[in-house]
C-alpha cells in the first residue's frame, strides 16, 4: 500500500499522460489474446482428459448456462450490486470521516485510531456468521460486513495523504491566520485525494468480497448465494456462471472508481494517471 502511494505521490508531480483509445487498446490486446488462448486450452483439456462435469465445467457449458439462466443471474446480480454499492458508499463516508477525525483531533488519533488498527488483525470474513446472528437474513448483515472490510484501507490511505502536506504551505496558511478547518479544506483534503483513490481501489474489491462472503453465510438471493446453492446441487456449471458474473461485477465497479478519479482530474490535475 505504502509503495503504491509513494509511486503515486512521485507520479503526481508530472503531467498526467492522456490515455488515448489507441493506447488503451494497445495495452489491452495481449492479455485478452492470452486469456482467449487459456479458455480454448481449458475447453480442449476437459474434453481430452474426460474430466467429470461435476469437477469442472467447460467454458461452452458455462456460457450456455449463463444464457439459459440469465434472468435468475440478473436478479442475483442486482441484489449483490445493491449491497456492494450501498455498503461501499457507507464505507467511503465512514472511512473519510474517521480519517478527518484522526488528523483533526489528537485524542482520536491517540485513543481511537490504535484500536481501529488493532482490529484489523481480526479475520473479518469470520465475522459474517456473527452478523447474521445479530441482524438476521436482511440486507443489514451484508452491509455491516462490507463496511467493516472496506472502510479501513480508505481511512489509512486518507490519513497518510492528509498528513503529507507541504510544511511551507502550512506556514503560509498560518501567516494569514488561517484556521485548522481552512487548512484542512483548502490544503490537506485536496493533497490527500490521490491517496484517497488508492484506498478506494482497494476498498471496492474488499466490498465485493464482503458481499459474497455475507451471502454465503446466510441469504436467499445474490451471486454468493447462487454459488453456495449450486454447490449443494453439484451444479458446477451454475457455480462457474455465477463466479464469472461476480468477477465481471467486481471489475466493472473497480473501473468505475478509476473513471471517477479520471473525471476528477479536471479539477485536481495532481491525481495520478489511472490504469483504467
Amino acid at each position: 500500500m505504502t509503495a503504491l502511494n509513494e509511486a503515486r505521490a512521485l507520479g503526481s508531480t508530472k503531467a498526467p499522460a492522456r490515455p488515448s483509445l489507441a493506447r488503451t487498446w494497445g495495452r489491452a490486446w495481449p492479455p485478452l489474446l492470452f486469456a482467449a488462448a487459456l479458455v480454448v486450452l481449458w475447453e480442449l483439456a476437459v474434453n481430452v482428459l474426460g474430466v467429470s462435469s461435476y469437477v469442472i465445467a467447460k467454458p461452452t457449458e458455462i456460457l450456455t448456462t449463463i444464457v439459459a439462466k440469465w434472468q435468475l443471474l440478473l436478479e442475483d446480480t442486482w441484489v449483490t450490486t445493491a449491497e456492494v454499492v450501498l455498503g461501499f458508499l457507507i464505507s467511503i463516508v465512514v472511512g473519510i470521516v474517521l480519517a478527518l477525525l484522526v488528523v483533526r483531533f489528537a485524542w482520536v488519533e491517540r485513543a481511537v485510531y490504535p484500536l481501529v488498527v488493532l482490529f484489523q488483525v481480526v479475520p473479518k470474513v469470520a465475522l459474517a456468521p456473527i452478523f447474521i446472528l445479530w441482524f438476521g437474513y436482511s440486507m443489514t448483515p451484508k452491509l455491516v460486513l462490507i463496511v467493516v472490510m472496506a472502510f479501513f484501507p480508505i481511512t489509512i490511505n486518507m490519513v497518510l495523504g492528509l498528513k503529507r502536506v507541504d510544511e511551507d504551505l502550512l506556514l503560509l496558511m498560518k501567516s494569514v491566520g488561517s484556521t485548522r478547518n481552512q487548512i484542512l479544506a483548502r490544503i490537506q483534503i485536496p493533497t490527500a485525494l490521490p491517496y484517497l483513490f488508492a484506498g478506494l481501489r482497494i476498498g471496492i474489491t474488499l466490498a465485493v468480497i464482503g458481499a459474497v462472503v455475507a451471502e454465503f453465510s446466510g441469504s436467499q438471493a445474490g451471486l454468493g448465494h447462487r454459488i453456495q446453492f449450486a454447490s449443494t446441487q453439484l451444479d458446477t456449471a451454475s457455480m462457474f456462471a455465477a463466479l464469472i458474473v461476480v468477477s465481471v461485477l467486481g471489475l466493472v465497479l473497480y473501473y468505475l472508481v478509476g473513471l471517477l478519479e479520471f473525471v476528477m482530474r479536471r479539477r485536481f490535475p495532481h491525481l495520478a494517471a489511472t490504469d483504467a
Binding site: 503526481s12 508531480t13 507541504d166 511551507d168 504551505l169 506556514l171 503560509l172 498560518k174 501567516s175 494569514v176 491566520g177 490544503i187 485536496p190 479539477r267 485536481f268 490535475p269 495532481h270
Partner: peptide
C-alpha cells in the same frame, strides 16, 4: 500582526498548490 494579516511571506521554496 499575523492575526491582522499585516505580514506577507515569500519562503525559500515556492510552495504552490499543484492543483
Amino acid at each position: 500582526a499575523v492575526a491582522r494579516k499585516d505580514i506577507g511571506l515569500v519562503l525559500q521554496r515556492p510552495a504552490l498548490l499543484p492543483w
